[in-house]
Design a protein around this nucleic acid. Structure first.
Lengths: 110, 110
DNA sequence: GCTTTAATGTACACATTGTAGGCATTCAAA
DNA sequence: TTTGAATGCCTACAATGTGTACATTAAAGC
């Protein structure tokens, strides 16, 4: 059988959020994106630890923004999804899709 | 914001497998269903512990098959997905769907 | 200048889920 | 009566999920 390195549920959300946001993806907007789209509350810590772990696994790449940010705070850390991250997402999606096939009617379409 | 009791990735697969199988869902076929549909290997232990936990959370209901099975082995334990289980699945799916919206093209449709 | 506030990130701790391996039970078949 | 197959259960450990508290930086207020 194939790869079998599944990623977790929240990890998927974080990867997808970064893709949605594009160039300007860093912690704060990632959190906001997930909250807005899924309507469920997300703590800041959850986002940052997950970002860290995804980077360790090579699914994300990160770099620090300008060392002297205009507005405030620590330098932003930006993220980009690596190829392996895309693959992982596709695999998760494909697995779920196979499992769902035919059930939409049973459960009432939505 | 809403419910926020997300279920894990593998938990989703197990719930969906039971729905796919229908009346005769017990450990062995659940495992087989997931392996066949997703193409990834699943250990027996993983299935049973997950079934247990889902039942504890009230997402599944179980009962033992006939105390004197014709063929062999311990009595089978059958499972049925509870309403809460359906809800959890729908919520997970809806969250992922929102997050995916618009990305299919970016990532190459599949 | 000094303090406060806002925007960020980092560190750590703990709970929940994921996953595997091995043991137990039961019955048929050898 | 021993062996084998089908099944479930137990237990341990790894990976993920999630929150709280702390640190850093610069603007804004005083």
């Amino acid at each position: 059988m194939g790869d079998h390195t599944p990623i977790g549920e929240f990890e998927q959300l974080v990867l997808l959020a970064i893709l949605q946001i594009g160039d300007t993806a860093y912690g704060v907007p990632v959190r906001r994106e997930i909250e807005h789209r899924t309507g469920r509350p997300v703590s800041r810590g959850a986002v940052y630890t997950t970002l860290d772990r995804l980077e360790s696994k090579g699914l994300l790449e990160s770099w620090l923004g300008e060392p002297t940010p205009e507005r405030s705070g620590k330098a932003k850390r930006f993220y980009r999804v690596e190829h392996a991250g895309i693959d992982a997402l596709k695999e998760s999606r494909s697995a779920l899709r196979s499992m769902w096939t035919g059930l939409e009617t049973v459960l009432g379409e939505l």
